[in-house]
Structures are given as structure tokens and as C-alpha cells.
Design a protein around this nucleic acid. Structure first.
Lengths: 171, 171
DNA sequence: AAAAACTTTCAGAATATTTTGAAAATTCAA
DNA sequence: TTGAATTTTCAAAATATTCTGAAAGTTTTT
């Protein structure tokens, strides 16, 4: 890519972030608002975001709330201001942890629950049922493994893998 | 959940797999066909799948091809049969590895590329540009870390984490 | 207490994704 | 070859998701 001006690069960042997010099952506007706030040194209010991204007030409001649920942005009440301002978590490592945590909760949790439900509902009293339960059990094990792996990766900064990473990251 | 008959449990499995898949950004029908084949001891052809899930031929065809791209199912040519039959990979650990691999490729790869592009386009000749590049660089580092972590988890069965798991899994 | 400033909600509109099914393309047996 | 069997394609229809904007709700100021 050729040299760009900052404004152009920021727009490209916001646009790219939005496009990639849809690939991850995340709403495009939510990702764009997040990108905008990530790049903004000051906190922003709803009107500023509306103007910047050219989207409606309702859309901004709902996605700001979702971003707060994900703990990727925080509300900031400025003295002397009626409006609510929002600021993004700038520590990218925290952002990544937060996203991974949320996705683990949304994607792996329900899978584990569903397999448990199925296990409980079936008695292994025929060969066919045993075969079915084998699959359910295997999925159950893999998903619990994935869940544990995520948790141990995220939980402890003493983790060897993470330390290894942090060394590189803090250079 | 109360006790269920096998048919009921299989239907629930297929339905659940489809619903969860949409949460993971995977097409519902693709997931249901996958679930159906996972639970089937015999390989199935397009007509059988159409009848079973009550979906159109075009839909079955396109999702079978996607599932083959993901390497979650294989085409099986039976002697004396004109029709193509499909069978799912039954080793759930392989299935999980395959899914993780594909998602890594789709979700992390483009992110790394996009950040590299942005880095190249901007010269750090002002404070604002330096701040921008800091964020891009941090995201770049985190995504490369995630990519490496995935790769090392998946690549080697000599990996301590995986061995640890396999011991439990093979019990 | 009333009004102004601001936030939230949500029904309908707009957009995006998935599905259908018939036509076109391909494969294979005779 | 021909034609029957099967697979693939793709435009249009159906469905699902996201967005808008005005009305309703809330908070703060006067």
C-alpha cells in the first residue's frame, strides 16, 4: 500500500476493523465504534460518534451498550457535561483477553451445557445409544478441554505461555 | 431433561448443533448437515440428506462442498453407485483441530495482514502518527501471538498441553 | 413543577444472508 | 454419440439481521 495520510489510515483502520468483525460474528457497527474510540485520544459522546460514522442515534446507543457489556469501552462522566462520554480500553492485551473471555462464554459454554443435557437424557441400553453417547461424550470432553485451555491462558499472567508472550510484547 | 428416545436425542443434537453454529459465525444448514453425518454410521447421499433435513438440493450441494473445504466430511464413491456419498470425520479431536485451524485462517490471518498494510502506509513523523502506529503495532503483536499459540496448540501432539489432554481424552 | 437536555426503546424500513428450484453442465453407461 | 442420471449454478424468493428515527422515558436545571 502506498503512503497514506493519518486521516486516511484511521478511516481504513475503522473500515477494516468493521469488515473483519463480521467474519468473527460481531456486528459491524459495534466494531467500527470500537475502532473509532480506540483511535481517539479523547472520550467521545453519542453525537460525535453519530457524526463521525454517519449512523443513527439508536444504532449508536445500542452498540455503545453492547461494547460496555463486552467491557471494551467505559462510560466517562465529565464535570460540567450533561452528555455521557465513552472511552475505549487502550491496553490491547486487555482488549484481547476481554474478547477471548466473552467468546469463550458465548461459544463454548452453551456447547458444554447442550452436551450435558443430551448425556442425561439417554440411557446406554442399546448399541446405537452407546454410539450416540460416545460422540456426545467426545464433544463434551473436547469442549471442556477448550474451555480449560482458554481459561488457563487468560487467567494467570504467571502462565509460561503468556510470560513468553509478554516478554516479546513489552519490548 | 427427561429421558428421551434415540431419534429424539439425535434430532435435538442436530438442532442444537445448528443453533450453536450460528453463534460461531457458521451457517446453520452446514452445521446441521455436519451433525447429521456425524451421527450416521453409514455415508449418505444428497437425496437422503434433502429428505432428512427437508432442504433443497442446491442448499445441500453448496453446504456439502463447504464442509469438504473445511475437511469435516469426505466424499465416498461406492462401487456400483452413480451417486456421491458423504461421510463425516468421526474423530472428534480431529474435527476440533480442523475447525480451530480453519477459524484461525479466516479470523486471525486477515487481521495480521491488515495491520501489516497499515504499518507500511504510515511514516512515524508526527506524534499523532506514532500514537496510531502504537495501536496498530500492538494489535499486530497480539494477533501474531494468538496465531502462534493456536499453531503450537494444534501442530504438535508432543505439546505438553495436548498430551495432558490426550491422557484424559483416551481414558 | 415545568422545561430543557439527554438517553432509551422499538416498530417499520433497509440491508444482508440464506434458500429454493429449475435450467445448465457434467458424468457415465450403453 | 446419445440420453439418462446426477451434480452444479445462480437469479429470484424467503428469511434473518441491522439500522433508522421519532416517540417515550429519564435526569438535571431553573
Amino acid at each position: 500500500m502506498a503512503l497514506m495520510e493519518l486521516k486516511e489510515a484511521k478511516d481504513k483502520f475503522i473500515h477494516t476493523w468493521g469488515t473483519l468483525a463480521t467474519q468473527w460474528g460481531i456486528n459491524r457497527t459495534m466494531a467500527q465504534i470500537h475502532a473509532l474510540l480506540l483511535l481517539s485520544s479523547k472520550s467521545m459522546n453519542a453525537d460525535e460518534i453519530m457524526a463521525d460514522l454517519q449512523i443513527s442515534r439508536g444504532n449508536v446507543n445500542m452498540n455503545l451498550r453492547d461494547l460496555m457489556d463486552w467491557k471494551l469501552i467505559y462510560k466517562q462522566l465529565l464535570p460540567g457535561e450533561r452528555k455521557e462520554f465513552f472511552i475505549a480500553e487502550k491496553d490491547i492485551w486487555k482488549v484481547a483477553k476481554q474478547i477471548a473471555k466473552e467468546r469463550r462464554r458465548r461459544e463454548i459454554g452453551p456447547l458444554i451445557e447442550a452436551m450435558e443435557d443430551l448425556k442425561e437424557g439417554i440411557q446406554p441400553d442399546t448399541v446405537e445409544k452407546e454410539e450416540f453417547l460416545k460422540i456426545v461424550n467426545d464433544i463434551s470432553k473436547v469442549s471442556i478441554f477448550a474451555d480449560n485451555t482458554m481459561t488457563s491462558l487468560l487467567k494467570s499472567d504467571e502462565n509460561w505461555l503468556m510470560n513468553n508472550f509478554i516478554k516479546v510484547f513489552n519490548k
